[in-house]
């Protein structure tokens, strides 16, 4: 079995905090990150979120760091492109490749830094939600803000069966590698195509078995998945609001200040 984000969402130290509060914190921070005009506020969010995730929610540092590497590598690559392609102003750094003059100008550098900071801040906030809030609780919040039932019911079933199919995909993959299905690029591509088609068929059959099983429990087209709601404490809301105001203050106060 793999360790999934979902495993931490189920058993982190913050799992009993109301999902509304956690969503407020996560989404609020994302908004502040993307509306800030300098890297300071997003960096503040990134650092504080990481501290919350590792320190308070008790998600292992190694796991979290590995997780963060994924968006970070994307952010670094794309901001490098932005840095070279964008902007006017004095060149900060230049090099020539095969007679081609490439230079990073301070405008571009600033934008690249902002891009990295925003990505980092946004991803940390998103990981905060993903690592501390089980999907089921997000569903119940969605229900309380009146997202259409059909969408919710579908997402719930999809969520449940993602794990079933994940297991099946892992089993098929094992069966393939066991018989050297990944020995060359060609066979890997072939194996992957087979995995996809078999998984599709299995999903289809699973659906048919599911409807039989639901019929056996008197399914009549109406799916009332009942929720057990949790309470939101005033104290936690206050803490979150205080945090968001600090982040916002950082964003506003550093509005004029540029790193370069």
């Amino acid at each position: 079995m793999h360790t999934l984000l979902d495993d931490y969402a189920q058993c982190n130290a913050l799992k009993d905090v109301s999902p509304k509060v956690k969503l407020l914190l996560g989404l609020g921070s994302i908004l502040i990150c993307i509306s800030s005009s300098t890297p300071a506020a997003p960096l503040f969010v990134a650092v504080s979120m990481s501290v919350i995730i590792v320190g308070i929610a008790r998600v292992p540092v190694r796991f979290y760091a590995k997780l963060l590497l994924i968006p970070l590598s994307f952010a670094l690559l794309s901001s490098a492109v932005v840095a070279f392609m964008h902007g006017t102003g004095t060149p900060v750094f230049s090099l020539s490749v095969l007679g081609l003059d490439l230079s990073v100008r301070d405008d571009g550098a600033r934008l690249a830094a902002l891009l990295i900071a925003r990505t980092l801040g946004g991803m940390c906030s998103l990981f905060f939600i993903a690592l501390t809030t089980p999907m089921i609780e997000i569903f119940s919040v969605l229900k309380s803000i009146r997202v259409p039932e059909v969408l919710l019911e579908l997402s719930m079933m999809i969520y449940r069966y993602i794990f079933v199919f994940l297991d099946q995909a892992a089993m098929i993959h094992n069966a393939q590698t066991m018989r050297l299905g990944d020995s060359s690029l060609r066979t890997s591509v072939n194996s992957f195509a087979m995995l996809c088609s078999v998984l599709f068929l299995q999903a289809w059959e699973q659906g048919e078995r599911l409807i039989v099983a639901m019929d056996a429990r008197c399914y009549d087209g109406r799916l009332d998945l009942l929720h057990q709601s949790s309470r939101t404490s005033a104290r936690s809301v206050m803490i979150v609001l205080a945090y968001l105001s600090v982040a916002l203050a950082v964003a506003v106060l550093t509005r004029e200040y540029q790193l370069l």
């Binding site: 089921i136 719930m156 449940r160 069966y161 699973q206 099983a213 929720h227």
Partner: peptide, 11 residues
Amino acid sequence: DDQIFAPTVYQ
């Protein structure tokens, strides 16, 4: 797995 379709045991 054919039978348990809801995301929580209670549901």
